[in-house]
Nucleic acid binder design. Structure first.
Lengths: 109, 109
DNA sequence: CCGACTATCTGTAGAATGACACTTAGTCAC
DNA sequence: GTGACTAAGTGTCATTCTACAGATAGTCGG
């Protein structure tokens, strides 16, 4: 699982894959889900989202799960995509573990 | 402190700022520090680093702390930069809090 | 002088992003 | 039929990133 070489994941890639790791979704649903769960004001523009979705499909991070009612194309995360999110989350956890204490302490020094 | 509009931070921006939040550093030192602390194989190319550093200086995230011995330009994080890292780390913590359990559970479903 | 290491920085090419506007089409309420 | 909402896309432009290579220069050991 050649997950390295793609890390670190772009923030929006991670958000998209994180949502898809929870449940398969279609493009519009992803826009809404990402908007909701990131209070920080992270937005997905459709122009970008569908491009990213195609790129992820080509990279084998996600796959089409057939269509829901004929109108919505549902995207599902693959094992490779899942491994990628896991690796990125692990990386971020290590980063947070290092940066959090340094941030608190660095201010007084 | 208009920190929003810049979030989410690009992964390498965050790494750079996180190091600088710990202690002021010069360019070459940043390359080495980021290389060491991210086992995930995240590298900083000098070509990118110095450009990113200039951009961050223009945005007021970092500032020059004079030079160390005349040869090395030392960069220090500003209050604005510090606020930015804090905000980004907080965003990542929320993200991890949501994504971690979903990732563990989403596999069985 | 030569080589290795430290250090800053430019040039370039290809890919991707972000933000804007726009099209097409089904559903639902009125 | 009109308007609002859901849904999937395309087109474009400026900016940016990444990765490659190379220029320039000081220090230290041999």
């Amino acid at each position: 699982m050649d997950v390295h070489g793609h890390l670190p994941l772009a923030p929006r890639d991670l958000l998209i894959l994180a949502v898809l790791a929870e449940r398969p979704s279609h493009g519009y649903g992803l826009i809404k889900a990402v908007e909701e769960r990131s209070e920080s004001g992270v937005l997905l523009d459709p122009a970008n989202l569908y491009r990213v979705l195609r790129r992820m499909r080509e990279l084998g991070w996600i796959e089409e799960a057939g269509d829901d009612e004929g109108r919505r194309r549902v995207h599902r995360i693959t094992d490779r995509g899942h491994a990628l999110v896991s690796a990125e989350l692990a990386r971020l956890e290590r980063l947070l573990g290092q940066a959090r204490p340094a941030l608190a302490q660095g201010r007084s020094g």
